[in-house]
């Protein structure tokens, strides 16, 4: 079991991006960005390799696109002012969002689902991320591959309202049975 082989296998199925994160700095070894429809394929690869599921969670990127637009505009303005080195000091912005913003409407913000997998034998923590549109956050369930994902998905549904298509029992887990709010969304107000 080594990380490079896993990386290879994930690349083959066509995930958007597999990068080796600096383990000592980040705490995980592989950072995988996957299109929602390829999630199940990617997870199946990990299952076949004997990984266990650590956690599933979400991140709400509300306001990210507007901030990026602002940043890009500022950058353009700065470049126009002074030609030399317009190095963005931000460091590692995800490549997905570093595309130059075109004129027009601000693209929709994303809800990100983050899956953590780890291996009992080798040290290779794999983080899979899938970005979903905020207005229609739907992704296939992986609870048929990992039954343990059942609860993690229910929890993520509680907190973010992400719908796991095909989940056998998507009812609130931590919130009251009749809860209809999603507290970890950035625009949540109680």
């Amino acid at each position: 079991m080594n990380c490079a082989a896993i990386k290879e296998k994930l690349t083959v199925i066509g995930v958007e991006m597999v990068s080796e994160a600096e383990y000592a700095r980040k705490g995980f070894a592989l950072d995988v960005q996957v299109a929602p429809h390829l999630l199940v394929a990617a997870v199946s690869v990990l299952d076949a390799e004997g990984f266990f599921i650590e956690a599933i969670t979400g991140v709400d990127w509300l306001g990210e696109q507007a901030a990026l637009r602002k940043e890009a505009e500022a950058k353009v303005a700065a470049e126009a002012k002074a030609q030399p080195e317009a190095e963005a000091a931000a460091g590692e912005a995800p490549p997905l969002v570093s595309q130059p913003a075109e004129q027009g409407e601000i693209p929709e913000d994303a809800l990100e689902v983050v899956y953590d997998f780890n291996h009992y034998e080798g040290l290779c923590r794999v983080t899979i991320r899938a970005r979903l549109p905020r207005s229609k956050p739907e992704i296939a369930t992986i609870s048929s591959i990992y039954p343990g994902a059942n609860w993690h998905e229910r929890e993520t549904h509680d907190f973010f309202g992400i719908i796991f298509v095909g989940h056998p029992y998507l009812v609130p887990l931590l919130l009251p049975e009749d809860a209809d709010f999603h507290p970890l969304l950035k625009d949540f107000r109680s």
């Binding site: 705490g27 995980f28 991140v59 709400d60 953590d116 923590r125």
Partner: peptide, 30 residues
Amino acid sequence: AKGDYYHAVETARGSFGVRVISDGSNTPYR
């Protein structure tokens, strides 16, 4: 610094992991 960090420790009950996402401000983003 901005970014996504993970750390796991062994507790009496098993592996406890914390993932923090920082947006560079004085509160965690997630």
